[in-house]
Amino acid sequence: MTPQALGRRELALLQFYCGCQFSMTPHAFYARWGVTHTQIAQICGVSEASVDRWFSHGKHRRVAEVRHRRKLAEMHFIWEHYERVPLELVAYICSPPPNGQVPSP
Rank of each mutant, 00 (worst) to 15 (best):
S56C: 13
L72C: 03
S56L: 12
S50C: 14
S56P: 04
A12S: 13
H37S: 02
E80V: 10
L11P: 00
V90F: 02
H27K: 05
A41Q: 02
E48S: 04
T36F: 05
P97L: 09
V66F: 09
H68D: 06
W54L: 02
I78W: 06
Y92T: 10
T25F: 07
A28E: 10
R67H: 12
H37N: 07
I40V: 10
R8D: 07
G45V: 04
Q15M: 12
H68R: 03
V66S: 08
S47T: 15
H76L: 02
T2K: 10
Q42Y: 12
H68E: 09
N99C: 11
T2A: 15
K59V: 13
L87C: 03
A91N: 05
L87S: 07
E10R: 07
M24D: 00
A5F: 11
P26C: 07
F22G: 01
V102W: 12
V51E: 02
H76T: 08
T25C: 04
H57T: 14
P86C: 04
V102E: 01
R32Q: 13
M1F: 12
V90T: 07
S95Y: 13
M24I: 06
Q15A: 15
V35G: 01
G100E: 01
H81D: 06
C18F: 07
C18N: 13
R61W: 13
I40L: 06
T36P: 00
Y30E: 06
W54I: 03
E10Y: 03
Q42V: 07
H57A: 12
H76D: 15
G19P: 00
Y30P: 00
K59H: 08
R8C: 06
T25M: 08
L87D: 04
S104Q: 13
